[in-house]
Amino acid sequence: MFGDMMNKLQETQKKVEETKERLKNVSLQESTTDDLLKITISAAREIKQIEIADELLEDKEQLEDYLILTLNKAIQKANDMHEAEIASVAKQGMPNIPGMDMFK
């Protein structure tokens, strides 16, 4: 029984690692409401691209504000997806074991 449980844990850990790798290739986009700034981020929380409209380059303060707000929203979106995917994989492998948040 203990051996089966260890095999299940190892199999689930492998699936979690595979999911983390897959999430590196999942792109999410976030932008300002006026589309002057667009951020592309992977579900593994890596910034991939930042697009800035020319008119934003004329207003440093607005650009800085937009960057902070939009980057934070993009990171939160990626974080939510990352955690949901990892939790789903971990739960599939071990539905009756408490403490699954260790795989986040």
Rank of each mutant, 00 (worst) to 15 (best):
K48L: 14
A90Q: 06
K77T: 10
Q29R: 10
L67W: 01
L71Y: 11
L63S: 08
I86Y: 00
L69N: 11
A74P: 05
T32F: 00
E11N: 13
D80I: 11
L69I: 15
Y66L: 06
A44F: 02
D54S: 13
D80Y: 07
T33A: 14
L69V: 15
N25S: 12
G99D: 08
K73L: 10
K15L: 11
D59P: 02
A90F: 10
A53M: 06
D101C: 02
L37R: 00
K60S: 11
K14G: 00
L9D: 04
F2V: 07
G3K: 12
T33Q: 13
I68V: 14
A53T: 05
L69G: 12
G99H: 07
M102W: 07
Q29L: 06
T32E: 02
S31D: 08
N79E: 13
K14P: 00
A90K: 07
L9P: 03
Q76N: 13
G93A: 10
L28M: 08
E17P: 03
D54L: 04
K104T: 08
I52G: 03
N25W: 00
K8W: 02
H82A: 08
L9T: 06
M5W: 07
M6A: 10
K77P: 05
A43I: 00
I50H: 03
I97N: 01
N79S: 15
S88N: 12
V89A: 05
Q92E: 15
L71E: 04
I97M: 15
R45M: 14
K60D: 12
